[in-house]
Design a protein around this nucleic acid. Structure first.
Length: 282
DNA sequence: ATCCAGGACCACT
DNA sequence: AGTGGTCATGGA
């Protein structure tokens, strides 16, 4: 978030976005003859009405849809997405952002913004594979350091080919991801949803588990995996989108109840997870 | 201070 | 196959 817009490095290019009355205004450093890379990243081609229309019409889902109108899922770079979520386990989103900021600053390629400021891209797997564990721990990632390093090694030496996974099925891609150190059910599903574009992937984190047990299956006594399989069946082919609506809704709801943002008049400031974007309906 | 955070893994049943 | 303890770090 930067001023009234958002900036990031996408596929090596600095880009800043602003929302203007149902349009997305994008600015880059160089002239772009082709904006497909950005359209793909933002997934603006997705028929959101069709996606939302596929959701079950229960009260929790409907109130999430009403509260998060326009919420979309991004299509992120597989390595960047995978690394982010390896760093995410039992961390608050603010802390994940801090860890990632350190990683980018220390090991990421330098990129110049339109204003001439130096920013940093997310470091490649090859670069991180060349970094010692203690240097990673200096970025405050704690016990996740060996997971990130070992996975970076597997990706860097080609034992895991993240580009090839783009052409593989949901099931095979999931199995390949689960074989990586530090990647379990939840993180695999995040990468399948946010990087490989499988809309049926349904990551169950502590927040989504909370929603499922409170509003859907309150007397379910099975483990997390059985709860997830229920959800995948119930929410349908776009379960991953439904998950994002429920996730974003419960988090913004809880903030409104407890935080000081209401008093500060910032209750409706745009607190969106890095994987999602609000676009005005239509 | 105490609890908990966009979990995964290992050693046990 | 399924469950509890453990792993760093720092918000809230």
């Amino acid at each position: 978030r930067e001023g009234d817009g958002w900036s990031n490095v996408v596929q090596g290019r600095w880009v800043q976005l602003r929302q203007e009355q149902g349009l997305i205004h994008a600015e880059t450093v160089n002239v772009q003859t082709d904006w497909n890379w950005l359209a793909d990243y933002l997934q603006v081609g997705v028929n959101l009405a069709g996606v939302v229309g596929s959701f079950p019409r229960d009260p929790a889902m409907q109130s999430a849809v009403a509260a998060c109108a326009g919420l979309r899922v991004f299509r992120q770079d597989p390595w960047e997405c995978l690394a982010h979520f390896i760093l995410s386990s039992t961390k608050q989103i603010v802390q994940i952002q801090q860890i990632v900021a350190e990683l980018k600053l220390r090991f990421g390629e330098r990129v110049v913004s339109a204003a001439g400021e130096v920013v940093h891209a997310f470091p490649s797997a090859t670069r991180l594979a060349s970094v010692s564990e203690s240097e990673l721990r200096d970025c405050k990632m704690g016990f996740r350091a060996p997971y990130l390093r070992d996975t970076a090694n597997l990706v860097a030496r080609g034992d895991c080919d993240l580009e090839r996974l783009r052409t593989r099925s949901f099931t095979e891609s999931r199995a390949q991801l689960l074989a990586l150190p530090g990647v379990g059910d939840k993180i695999a599903d995040c990468v399948l949803l946010f990087a490989y574009g499988f809309p049926q992937a349904f990551p169950v984190d502590v927040w989504v588990e909370r929603v499922l047990r409170r509003h859907y299956w309150p007397r379910h006594r099975g483990n997390l995996r059985s709860l997830q399989s229920r959800a995948v069946e119930y929410f349908g082919p776009f379960a991953g989108y439904a998950q994002q609506y429920l996730f974003h809704h419960i988090r913004t709801q809880d903030r409104r109840l407890a935080s000081s943002d209401v008093a500060n008049g910032r209750a409706h400031s745009n607190r969106i997870s890095p994987n999602t974007l609000h676009v005005l309906p239509g």
